[in-house]
Amino acid sequence: MMLALALLLDAAFGEPRWLWSRLTHPAVLIGNAIGWADRRFNHGAARRLKGVLLTGALVLGGVALGGVIEALGALPTVLVAAVLLAQRSLADHVRAVARALRLSTTEGRRSVAMIVGRDTTQMEPPAIARAAIESGAENLSDGVIAPAFWFLIAGLPGMLAYKAVNTADSMIGYRTPRHEAFGWAAARLDDLLNLVPARLTALLLVLASGRGTDWRALRADARLHRSPNAGWPEAAMARALGIALSGPRSYHGEMQDLPWVNETGRRDAAPGDIDRAVMMLWKAWGVMLFVAILGAAL
Results as ranks from 00 to 15, higher is better:
residue 7 L to H: 07
residue 277 A to N: 07
residue 168 A to T: 05
residue 214 D to C: 10
residue 30 I to Y: 12
residue 187 A to V: 02
residue 40 R to V: 11
residue 235 A to K: 03
residue 96 A to G: 14
residue 244 A to C: 06
residue 236 A to M: 06
residue 117 G to K: 13
residue 58 L to I: 02
residue 106 T to K: 04
residue 195 L to I: 10
residue 155 G to S: 08
residue 135 S to E: 00
residue 231 G to K: 09
residue 75 L to Q: 11
residue 41 F to L: 14
residue 206 V to A: 14
residue 131 A to Y: 06
residue 54 L to D: 02
residue 48 R to I: 01
residue 265 G to K: 09
residue 53 L to M: 15
residue 76 P to G: 07
residue 97 V to F: 00
residue 240 A to M: 09
residue 266 R to N: 10
residue 23 L to H: 10
residue 190 D to H: 08
residue 148 A to F: 07
residue 145 I to E: 01
residue 116 V to C: 10
residue 205 L to V: 13
residue 220 A to V: 11
residue 209 S to L: 05
residue 216 R to H: 13
residue 136 G to F: 01
residue 232 W to P: 08
residue 265 G to T: 12
residue 85 L to R: 02
residue 86 A to L: 00
residue 47 R to E: 05
residue 175 R to L: 12
residue 70 E to A: 13
residue 226 R to I: 09
residue 208 A to V: 08
residue 161 A to C: 00
residue 234 E to M: 14
residue 218 L to Q: 03
residue 48 R to Y: 05
residue 152 L to V: 00
residue 50 K to I: 08
residue 53 L to V: 15
residue 69 I to N: 03
residue 235 A to T: 09
residue 167 T to Y: 03
residue 288 M to T: 03
residue 212 G to S: 13
residue 27 A to K: 04
residue 214 D to A: 07
residue 28 V to A: 15
residue 135 S to L: 00
residue 3 L to H: 00
residue 245 L to T: 12
residue 15 E to N: 14
residue 189 L to Q: 06
residue 241 L to G: 01
residue 231 G to C: 12
residue 242 G to M: 09
residue 27 A to L: 14
residue 64 A to N: 07
residue 288 M to V: 07
residue 135 S to G: 13
residue 26 P to S: 05
residue 145 I to Y: 00
residue 210 G to P: 12
residue 172 I to N: 02
residue 282 W to T: 01
residue 184 W to N: 09
residue 68 V to L: 15
residue 75 L to S: 11
residue 173 G to C: 03
residue 151 F to H: 05
residue 39 R to Q: 13
residue 40 R to P: 11
residue 179 H to C: 11
residue 188 R to T: 04
residue 96 A to Q: 09
residue 292 A to S: 08
residue 168 A to Y: 02
residue 33 A to M: 11
residue 196 V to E: 07
residue 152 L to G: 09
residue 110 R to I: 01
residue 111 S to T: 05
residue 146 A to K: 00
residue 283 K to L: 11
residue 15 E to A: 10
residue 115 I to S: 06
residue 76 P to T: 08
residue 104 S to V: 05
